[in-house]
């Protein structure tokens, strides 16, 4: 009995370690390349270590420009997304109106439509409206990817705020607006924060659509990656990858407990 138990423990441990290696291996391997002078197959360590590639990236105007573009566009996208979607999320979460469920299903269906196909048809629209190669075009394209996050997660959070908490505030003398501001919004805030972070990442990482709409005029960091992979040494791509991951890593720190707390999972259920 004890031997079997020990064996099971070892099995579980091995499986867990294998999974972690599977997840972390590629990232660490790529990360190591960012500081390597060169790499000889089949060595497991670089020939030498350097920060040369970092200087190269920051000195390259195209690369630095892409970083700036990304950092500029993404917050705008998230902001617009929040302004458009949060009222809708509140309506969906709080009111039942005819077609509410249809709307949810429709949105899900639209989300099931392959993005690249959506971009293809958007491209048609953008040609007609002269939005190809413009910042507005990219903003719209990136906006599309954020809508699902920005609507569903907050909607379920709004729905989860107990009515009695709002009524207690009304009874205490607060107007509807004050109740929304001080009670409803506050209680939904962690989920909204998660939605904002997910939207930020979705927008920041969006490549296909931005490439289609933006190239060759405007490059964001991810679309620049496509070019990098083909035209630069692997170490530059590695450096750029690390830079591209920085916002994500910062946001993990902010959002970890909420996301792991299952808020995300809850957000994706139609009620």
């Amino acid at each position: 009995m004890n031997a079997r138990r020990a064996l099971r423990e070892i099995g579980i441990g091995a499986l867990a370690i294998a999974l972690m290696a599977f997840i972390l291996g590629p990232i660490l391997w790529l990360g190591a390349h960012a500081f390597a002078t060169s790499w000889t197959f089949p060595r497991l360590s670089a020939d030498g270590w350097t920060t040369h590639w970092w200087h190269e990236v920051f000195a390259d105007s195209a690369l630095a420009g892409a970083i700036r573009t990304s950092l500029l566009i993404t917050p705008v996208v998230v902001l617009i997304s929040a302004v458009i979607c949060l009222p809708a999320a509140y309506a969906i979460g709080r009111h039942s109106f005819p077609g509410r469920r249809l709307f949810l299903i429709g949105m899900f269906a639209a989300n099931a439509f392959p993005k690249i196909g959506l971009f293809a048809s958007l491209a048609a629209l953008f040609y007609a409206m002269n939005l190809m190669g413009t910042v507005i075009g990219i903003v719209i394209v990136q906006l599309l990817g954020t809508i699902v996050f920005m609507t569903w997660i907050p909607a379920s959070a709004f729905a989860a705020v107990p009515r009695s908490l709002e009524e207690a505030a009304r009874d205490a003398g607060a107007s509807r607006l004050t109740v929304f501001r001080t009670i409803t919004l506050r209680l939904a805030m962690p989920s909204i924060l998660v939605a904002v972070i997910m939207s930020f990442l979705a927008s920041f990482d969006e490549a296909q659509g931005s490439y289609l709409v933006g190239a060759p005029n405007i490059y964001t960091m991810p679309t620049e990656m496509y070019a990098l992979v083909e035209n630069y040494p692997i170490q530059v791509a590695a450096v750029f990858s690390i830079l591209l991951s920085v916002p994500s890593v910062i946001l993990i720190g902010l959002a970890r407990q909420h996301i792991i707390g299952g808020r995300l999972a809850e957000g994706f259920q139609i009620r």
């Binding site: 291996g25 490549a207 994500s248 996301i259």
Partner: peptide
């Protein structure tokens, strides 16, 4: 650990896996 890939941009995931399993990869 398991949630890490969620925060890695897809482009980078693809590229990291490419270098990991590629011709002169790990």
């Amino acid at each position: 650990i398991i949630v890490v890939p969620m925060f890695v941009p897809v482009v980078i995931s693809a590229w990291a896996i490419h270098t990991f399993y590629g011709g002169d990869g790990f």
